[in-house]
């Protein structure tokens, strides 16, 4: 019974922590949209705009990655730790 509760709680927690994926999605969408506008306005600056956008996107991704790391911990590391404690 305790085992089932622990596994269920870990799975629910992993799902909840992946809500963090919403933020980077919206943010990167904005960034790419603005980059498209910039390229449409000045097609000759395509190279710099693209590299700056990729860089900014990767930085904006960080919070989503944190959520993902927590989800990975909850799915693959924490259950075995708690089950060993039982």
């Amino acid at each position: 019974m305790e085992k089932a509760i622990i596994l269920a709680a870990c799975a629910i927690g992993a799902g909840l922590s992946m809500i963090a994926g919403i933020g980077p999605g919206i943010g990167e969408g904005f960034a790419v949209g603005k980059a498209c506008e910039a390229i449409a306005r000045q097609p000759e600056s395509r190279g710099t705009v693209t590299s700056t956008m990729l860089m900014g996107c990767a930085v904006a991704e960080t919070t989503g990655i944190y959520g993902f790391v927590v989800a990975i911990l909850l799915l693959f590391v924490i259950p075995s730790m708690f089950l060993a404690m039982l």
Binding site: A58, V59, E61, T62, I65, Y66, F68, V69, I72
Partner: peptide, 16 residues
């Protein structure tokens, strides 16, 4: 921490 986790998370997400 953020530099390490960013790279780690990206690669591990691919593996998983």
């Amino acid at each position: 921490v953020s530099m390490a986790f960013r790279h780690f998370g990206n690669v591990v997400s691919g593996v998983v």
